[in-house]
Amino acid sequence: MAKPKQILDKSQLNLTLKRLMFEIVENVEDFDNFAIIGLQPRGVLFSRMLKSMLENEGKIKNLVYGELDITFYRDDYRRNESSLVPSKLDIDFDIEGRNILLVDDVLYTGRTIRAALDAIADFGRPKKVELMALIDRRYNRELPIEADYVGQTVDTRGTGLRVQVDLEGDTPKVTMVESKK
């Protein structure tokens, strides 16, 4: 089995975040008709970092921001041993006709994003939905879903490793660690 290894340390994470921030500033034409939606529970730590960087370094004013919980839309409900715990949902703007950027920390099977797209549809009909993932675990997809913005791509096939994103505290980092069995 492969050894745990670091993918991004604090400074690399900061650089990646900055690059993603500039990609958004470059691509988004109208920030008034744009919104970032972070996915609960783990994607929101990343989306909040992105939000503050866009506001502070990207100088974007009145950035529309929300957080979405997809617990009630998951497709493994009642098929999973562990119980599902819903998180706070915070979307206080109109999604109708807006360009939405979904933000999650790790893109893996794509099922979370499938659920998020269903959840968003229940708030209205966005003009466009794009996806940003800090880490893209390629070759593990179970649904035809790809990210538009990717921080780092990793391949965990055959390693028995999973990706652990740790954004809290003074030394945020992304590492590959042994899968919980």
């Binding site: 617990t71 839309y73 409900y77 949902l89 269903d118 229940d122 708030f123 209205g124």
Partner: peptide, 19 residues
Amino acid sequence: STADNFKDVLNRPIKKVPS
């Protein structure tokens, strides 16, 4: 705490989840 989440759902335009 689960009911708190459902109260949010009930205040949305589409008051329904597929659970």
